[in-house]
Simulated scan of single mutants.
Amino acid sequence: MITGSTVALVTPMTAAGDICWQTLEQLIEFHVFNGTEGIVAAGTTGESATLSFEEHAQVIRFTVEKVAGRVPVIAGAGGNSTAEAIKLTKDAKQYGADAVLSVVPYYNKPTQKGLIAHFTAIADAVDIPILLYNVPGRTIVDMTVETVAVLAKHKNIVGIKDATGDVSRVQPTLEACGPDFAQLSGDDATSCEFLLAGGHGTVSVTANVSPKGMVEMVSAARQEDRDRAERFDQLLVPLHQKLFVEPNPIPVKWALNQMGLIPPGIRLPLTELDACFHEEVMQALKDSGVAG
């Protein structure tokens, strides 16, 4: 089971929009050194929507090679076309990913029956652990607990990243899917409560800038130490809030650039963080102890 604090890793880019491979390697080492327990490569935060198929495969292959088995690598491999998602999933397996993160198809608004057919087709086509990814804020469609329960019966579907922010789903999902089905929070603001309610880990944007803080919070929450978990989470709250003042990954890439960890590049149609937000994001970095 994939547990603990997993980072939804950014894809560093130059000002011209080219992938910066040396910086990606440095970010990987930064996370391994700071205790991050898993890395998502080429996910939403990694700007998967604007990576070409070739770049997508290159990011996954590069990340797997540089991680070298020290932590699990989860490859973003979703799409709004089932055939495309299968191809990305096959690529992820070929390049050695430990699992894939497969998002609910976006834009075309499938039914719950369509979701079952989509994910079943992927799981039948590729023998690799699959994490479902429910993020209705981006996909419009919300995958229900009942649909997750049907999909959890497939041997290759091993868990879910739940970015709904609805902590009340944890227990019904546990009852419907069993204790071996991984539940990972995809909403930083509610991740502490998600874990205290019985979740197994997080896939975090905040972990990009505060990997140690997220590891400490997740560890305390998984030990059911509410007081300690909430103390750590309170330090992270400014980041949970301000790293989403514009659509992810705009604020987190700006923050990482200010920390000297990545170049300023981001790909259109995303643009650099608006200047009106610079002061408050910087203040969040200071308040959380990750910037002087």
Rank of each mutant, 00 (worst) to 15 (best):
A117V: 06
N257K: 07
G78W: 01
T45F: 01
G114V: 09
I250Y: 02
P249M: 08
P249C: 08
F53Y: 12
A92W: 03
A284M: 06
K66L: 13
V141S: 14
V148I: 15
Q94Y: 12
A83F: 02
E193R: 11
L270G: 01
E84R: 10
Y106W: 13
G114F: 09
A197I: 08
W254K: 01
D166T: 08
R169W: 09
Q94I: 11
D18R: 12
E84M: 11
V64K: 07
L27Q: 12
G213S: 09
A57G: 12
I122K: 04
T6W: 00
V145E: 10
T82V: 15
V252D: 05
T82W: 08
Q241H: 13
H31R: 05
M13A: 05
A15P: 07
P172Q: 06
G69W: 13
T147R: 08
M259N: 12
V135R: 00
S185V: 05
P72I: 02
A92P: 08
P110R: 04
G79M: 02
G35T: 05
F277W: 15
D233Y: 15
F232G: 00
V126P: 02
G17A: 09
A57D: 10
A16G: 14
T120Q: 13
L174M: 13
I60Y: 03
D188Y: 02
V7E: 06
E246K: 05
Y133T: 05
A83V: 14
N34I: 03
V141G: 01
V67S: 10
A68Q: 14
A197V: 09
F194I: 11
P72L: 05
T63M: 10
E175W: 06
A182C: 11
G46S: 06
V71E: 01
K153Y: 01
P251D: 07
V40N: 04
